[in-house]
Design a protein around this nucleic acid. Structure first.
Lengths: 151, 151
DNA sequence: CGGATAATGTTATGCGCATAACCAACCTGT
DNA sequence: ACAGGTTGGTTATGCGCATAACATTATCCG
């Protein structure tokens, strides 16, 4: 691929990251959330209580990041951490009532953000977008170097 | 749009951002660069010497970020800052010789990264990807609230 | 068994990004 | 010509992310 095209693509990804995150930040600010935290709440809302290692996996970020984020969300009262009964190392984290309420708010914003993001694009394109983006993500994902032969 | 679809889309964007950036970081590390810095070098390589405000505009990040990044790239000797002759407030920044060499290296990596990113996608999709991503970026861009009437 | 290895979580540190507050220099307009 | 607003840049602070180094607990195996 020539540099022009490559640059256009890489830069497009970078700018989309920046602006999409900035827009999310603007929408989440009234709820007192910073971008990234909503993903944690949504994941807990989707899958129920889970251990930090699982959160790290689901969110696609490293354990130290999860430690910090959970600490802050615990401080603001949206999640709760308790020692896991079966493993003295682990701590299971779950939504509090206020956290569940907040997750509900986030879901509304999330729909608005998605619609805003793909406004004006042909419906067909919108339909295949998640698949395309996920494929691209998989192409550059270095988090699971093993496991490439999975069935 | 229902929450399922919206969530799939927003999450896909978030994960692509994380992984694409992480992959870029891994490629740039051998050059001693952190992700984000390559954009500054490439912009200078594209457009020649320019003022920090223009860099801020081109990179899509805020002036304080540019201040820090230029300071670090100056410390590593890849760029040079000089007072602007026509405006005592401004400082024009340009690549040094080592900066130009580094930009050349980055261009090679950039092509590799782009190819890696779109591997396996149909050529047609790849062709329209930059346009799609740029359109999405424009949809959520809150940086230019003015200028909306530019057809 | 018991010792090596793996997995969970934390602290420390650093980078890119953001906002808010501020100074200095450059326009304006009346 | 000068008061007031605008623009260019910096500092301070905070967040999400990363890696490296570490302590603790689980697990595997000879």
């Amino acid at each position: 691929m020539d540099f022009e095209r490559a640059d256009a693509l890489n830069q497009a990804v970078r700018l989309l990251s920046l602006r999409h995150r900035a827009r999310a930040a603007a929408l989440l600010a009234p709820l007192g959330l910073h971008p990234g935290q909503e993903a944690l709440l949504l994941e807990l809302s989707r899958s129920g209580p889970m251990i930090q290692a699982q959160l790290s996996e689901a969110l696609g970020c490293e354990p130290p990041s999860v430690t910090i984020m959970t600490r802050k969300l615990e401080a603001t009262g949206h999640i709760r951490r308790a020692p896991a009964p079966s493993d003295k190392r682990a701590s299971v984290v779950e939504l509090t009532e206020s956290g569940e309420a907040l997750a509900g708010q986030v879901k509304l914003l999330w729909c608005a953000l998605a619609e805003e993001t793909v406004a004006g694009l042909p419906a067909e394109t919108v339909a295949e977008l998640p698949g395309i983006l996920t494929a691209m993500t998989g192409n550059v994902d270095t988090r699971r170097p093993r496991r490439s032969r999975e069935r």
